[in-house]
Amino acid sequence: MIPTLPRPAWLRAATALYVAAFLMFLFLPLAVVAVFAFNDAPYPAPPWHGFTLDWFLGNEAAGRIGLFRDSELLGSIWTSSIVALWVTGLSVAVGTANAFAMERAQFPGKGALSMLMLTPLVIPGVILGISILAFASRLAELCSDLFAVEADFLRPGLPLVVLGQFSYIAAIATLTISARLKRFDRTLEDAALNLGASRPAVLWTITLPYLRPALIGSAAIAFLMSFENFNTTLMLVGADSPLTIMMYGRMREGATPVLNAVSLFLMVASAVIALTLIRRGRSPES
C-alpha cells in the first residue's frame, strides 16, 4: 500500500499499468486533436493522408480555409479575448475588495455574506445563465415601458456574457485572494506605518505587493475560465459568438480540421499559461 510496506510484484506491475492506462486516457483525445490538425484530408478522421499546414495557412484558392484565413474563427477568438479581459479585470478587482472586506472589516451579517459569496460555485452554469437572461430582459422591458428607452446592453449579447461569467468567476477570485490575505502578517503594516508610511502608501508598498502572486494567479485562472466557459455563455450569447460557442456550432455540423488547428492553438496557449503559473508557484518568493 505504501512504499515502506512489502508490496507483491503483481501489485507493483498493476499500479504501473494503471498509471500508464490512465495517462493514455487523459492524453489520447488531446493527442488525436493535435495530430489531425496536420492531416491532409477534408475531415479530421483516419486514414492518414500525409502532412499539411493547410488547416493553418490555407486560403480559399486552395479550397481549404486555414485558421489564419478564417475570419469567422479569428473574430470569435478576438471576441473571447475581449470578454475574458473584462471578466478578469472585474473579477480580480471585486475579489480584492471582497478579500479586504471579509478579512479586515467587522460588520453584522458577515457570516451570511461569506456563505452567499460561495453560492455561485454550486449553481449550475446553465441556471446562472437563464436567471441573468430573464432578469436582464425584465429590466430592459421596465426601461422601455417606463422611460421608453431601449436598453440594448440588457439584451443577449457580450455585456450579458461578461456579467454571467463574472457572476461565478468573482467567487473563485475572492477565495484565492482571501486565502493569501489571511496569511498576511499584519505587523508588517504596523512596521511600515512606524517607518512613516501613510495608509495608502502601506497598501501600495506592502500589502498589494504581498498579494501579487494571488492577484496574478487569480487573473490567469479568471482569464482561462472565461475563455473556456460554455454553459453560461450559451444562454446569454447574442450575435457575436465567442470561440467555444463558435466551435460548438461547427462541431455539430461536422467541421473541417481547422477546428483541430484552433484547438491546438488553444492547447499551446493554455499549456504556456499553466506552466508559467506552476513555475511561479514553486519559486521561493511565494
Binding site: 502578517d185 508588517l188 504596523d190 517607518l195 508610511a197 501613510s198 505587493p209 501579487r212
Partner: peptide, 21 residues
C-alpha cells in the same frame, strides 16, 4: 499624532522585515 508622524521607530518582536523587498 498618528503613528506614522511620530519621531519614534520600532524594532518589532518578529522584526517584521518586508519579505517582498
Amino acid at each position: 499624532v498618528a503613528p506614522n508622524r511620530r519621531p519614534v521607530n520600532m524594532v518589532f518582536q518578529q522584526l517584521a522585515l518586508f519579505p517582498m523587498m
